[in-house]
Design a protein around this nucleic acid. Structure first.
Length: 433
DNA sequence: TCTGGGGTCCTAGGACCC
DNA sequence: TCTGGGGTCCTAGGACCC
């Protein structure tokens, strides 16, 4: 048995903790560049705002419907997430932190009334962090996800499901007929692993609900779709195929990519951006004690600007030896950039990815005379990381990232940023009696 | 004017080998 | 008259997730 604990409208809920005036108001949190809505309050959903809706298309709701939009404050959300995860962990013996607002809990060996226990944990999270969440439980991770969706929908849209399933839903506690009714009332696209494309194909084939999918013939699913969807059907039928990942796995690739605040046409600001992206990626790589064997860099124009001539290219630069050295990674990325940059386009986005990662504990011994120099380099990297951690991101960086004070042409827009309530001493809220 | 960022897994097809 | 079969590795692209 598994549970899935999931914060409701997570980023919006975080903001509401410190701005209670936002309760009951339609609120969205915007992606980087204030580009599109990535979290919506229930009131915003009720206004018909879709996930990922571009801000410029819904901006008029500010005036007409009192919509409030905030720039994403990921540092703050990450801190709230840690607090929530620590409380959620008490639900069972093992926890997998699946995303910033979701964790799976293995319920093996947990005794007593699971629904009651889940309600207790839910209250503790609400009291301890101010974040409301939904808890779903089932025999497999896919069923737990589904139960979570049912719990949240039952709360948000009374009448959609039995009232008793609101906030906490344990599918195992339902009678067979009740479970069938609930599955028959849930569109197939809500299943974990069924996205837009597969959902469309399923519906075209007459599979409309979770119940339809659960009853599909496995061989047919495999033949017409893939082993991946077959696994999903097995999980819906109660056969576990996806294990709980108790320990966080080392990343297999690390990316840092950004859209620019406005279009870039020349090489110099692109070089600055690529330097910074490679530096950020290198920091992440060192944090997981990894080394990269290849660096990929890409640049592209905006596919949304139909009138612009389009260009999109990437190149992979192999490294002479595995490395986590910012200077090595930046140089490789810049060399790659030089090979794909073409004048005459309006660039909207660039990115650096570190690929073919390995652990630095497995480093191949090398017969060369540079060992001392390499030692010095890794001490330099450690010093840089420590300084940046202590005094703030990017305080120490390579000169090609652009000197501070220079106004960077490519930085993103963030016009509605809220304070770092729990992550910055200067921003700590003050309580008044 | 204006549309995010960071991941994983699977598959098909080509290159290459014996 | 008339040119095999099978395996592995790599890459690009597509689908999914939050």
């Amino acid at each position: 048995m598994y549970a899935l604990v999931d914060g409701n409208n997570f980023y919006v809920s975080c903001e509401r903790v410190f701005q209670p005036a936002l309760n009951g108001v339609p609120v969205v949190v915007l992606s980087n560049n204030d580009g599109c809505a990535i979290a919506r309050s229930n009131e915003a959903k009720a206004l018909g705002i879709a996930m990922g809706a571009p801000w410029f298309q819904i901006k008029h709701l500010e005036a007409s419907a009192g919509l409030v939009a905030l720039s994403a404050n990921f540092g703050f959300y990450g801190d709230m997430s840690d607090r929530m995860m620590r409380l959620a962990a008490a639900l069972g013996p093992r926890q997998e932190i699946y995303s910033i607002d979701e964790s799976f809990i293995d319920l093996a060996g947990v005794r007593g009334d699971l629904v009651e226990r889940a309600h207790t944990i839910r209250s503790r999270i609400l009291q301890g962090t101010g974040i409301p969440c939904g808890i779903g439980m089932g025999r497999t991770k896919t069923l737990a996800k589904l139960a979570n969706h049912i719990a949240k929908t039952a709360e948000r849209k009374p009448g959609s499901y039995p009232e008793a399933l609101a906030q906490v839903c344990n599918l195992e506690a339902l009678q067979a007929a009740e479970q069938e009714a609930v599955f028959a009332a849930t569109p197939v696209g809500e299943v974990w692993g069924v996205g837009r494309q597969i959902g469309k194909r399923l519906v075209a084939g007459g599979i409309h609900t979770v119940l339809d999918l659960q009853r599909m013939d496995l061989a047919t699913v495999r033949r017409q779709f893939s082993v991946v969807l077959e696994r999903t059907v097995l999980e819906l039928q109660g056969t576990p195929c996806i294990e709980l990942e108790h320990m966080p796995q080392a990343k297999k690739e690390i990316a840092c990519t950004r859209s620019f605040g406005r279009a870039i046409t020349t090489l110099e600001p692109l070089s600055e951006a690529v330097t910074e992206f490679a530096s950020r990626a290198a920091e992440k790589l060192r944090r997981q004690h990894g080394l990269a064997n290849q660096v990929l860099v890409y640049i592209r124009t905006s596919p949304f600007r139909k009138d612009d001539r389009q260009y999109s290219r990437s190149v992979t630069v192999p490294l002479r030896r595995p490395s986590a050295d910012t200077a090595v990674l930046v140089q490789s990325a810049l060399r790659g950039l030089g090979s794909i940059f073409v004048e005459g386009f309006r660039y909207a986005k660039a990115g650096v990815m570190l690929l073919d990662l390995q652990s630095n504990r497995l480093q191949q011994g090398e017969l060369d005379l540079e060992d001392d120099r390499m030692e010095d380099r890794s001490r330099l990297m450690l010093a840089m990381d420590t300084l940046n951690q202590r005094f703030g991101k990017g305080k120490v960086h390579l000169a090609s990232a652009g000197l501070q004070g220079n106004h960077k042409q490519w930085t993103m827009r963030q016009e509605r940023r809220t304070p770092g309530y729990t992550t910055s001493w200067a921003d700590i809220p003050i309580a008044r009696a």
